[in-house]
Design a protein around this nucleic acid. Sequence first.
DNA 1: ACCTGAACACCGTTCAAGT
DNA 2: ACCTGAACACCGTTCAAGT
Lengths: 226, 226
Amino acid sequence: MTEEPRSRRERPAKAPLTRRGIVAAAVQVMRSEGMDRVTMRRLAKELDTGPASLYVYFRNTAVLHGAVLDDLLAAVDLGPVGAAGDWRLRIEAVLASYMDVLFEYPSLAQSAVSARPAGENYLRLLEGLLALLDEGGVPADQAAWGVDILLQLATAAAAEHAGGDDPEAWGAARAALLAVSPDTHPRIAALGEGLFSGSGEERQSWGIRVLINGVLGTPRTGGESA
Amino acid sequence: MTEEPRSRRERPAKAPLTRRGIVAAAVQVMRSEGMDRVTMRRLAKELDTGPASLYVYFRNTAVLHGAVLDDLLAAVDLGPVGAAGDWRLRIEAVLASYMDVLFEYPSLAQSAVSARPAGENYLRLLEGLLALLDEGGVPADQAAWGVDILLQLATAAAAEHAGGDDPEAWGAARAALLAVSPDTHPRIAALGEGLFSGSGEERQSWGIRVLINGVLGTPRTGGESA
DNA sequence: ACCTGAACACCGTTCAAGT
DNA sequence: ACCTGAACACCGTTCAAGT
């Protein structure tokens, strides 16, 4: 005869699998061990089962990562949507909050570039941005496409920091730009350090303003702006 | 006694390893078996050696992928840079050519989002875009930051098609957007199908115009545009 | 320096079988 | 339907040793 379990609190007692439970475990593993441990196998171990079991809930790893991202997006601050003040600054604030979330786990941002989430938190973010664009007088058809670009650029900017920010690789890239000959690459040479000027935040803030101005000033037919 | 090799042409005779040779093998494997077979191990097999040998030339897989991308970038058509005609349309043409290359191997685009290349072909592309922005009268400081956003958005757009364009996942995302309640998400509901309107090319072309207009019309200090 | 075999520590996904 | 163990077919990277 084997021992009876003394209490169901010895372990989480193998709670039945659910989508939410799996995502919760994934977030936990992500916070403690980093995004590249959020694998089907690692999660199966965490949930005390075999990897095959998870495929009942998530068709593949990309879908699982999408669900994790949407879960994290609950932390995006949508306060500025209903607040007072310049609508452009409020869009900037919302996107900055979105990027703050992604910056913590850049490899999640990287997967989000190719597998945009469609969960409730992502929908809320979309709705908030559309409300702000509407408030700013952006025509609906331009807003529909514009919100997509806005999120895409913010996501890509965060994803850029995935892969460990390898300082050697970055130094090499910088050196390549600065070592260019003025004869073959006159404008790169002329700009020089100027290509690297500004902090990440300054560049990002400018990038968002560029997009807002462009979205506002570029009709969907016609080409040139005012 | 073992057989003497009959000829050194029986196989490529184990040419000595070089950076260029490895990249060439990588491109070949990529074209015949797809990007996710471009691994250190697969390449080592192709080059008739062990995986460890490749680490002499590439610090890790990401760097190798970057070198492959730069190699492919030789195919970008920079003709429009020196041609006549509307500078905006010529920027569009160059970026469209860049995206054509990336669209063939979206997972390469995906890695380019986080590991921008710095090879000779990338530098040429950068130089070409800077020349066009200059021709269009974009101030140098705005061009320096703007060219970065332009490439980032084009790269991200191509990367979006990585991971196999899973039609089920796409359908699910679309359904989620269309199923939203007008009470909780009024603007998403109001836009409805409008969020998905247009072809990829139309959206991309508009996106580039948005960026050009924004870059041209957004000074680096000051905020609001004209 | 360059090159290598072998090892360490993992992966995603599918299958046949169970409940 | 949901769940599983086991298997298939791989990975990246490092190490100690060789040339």
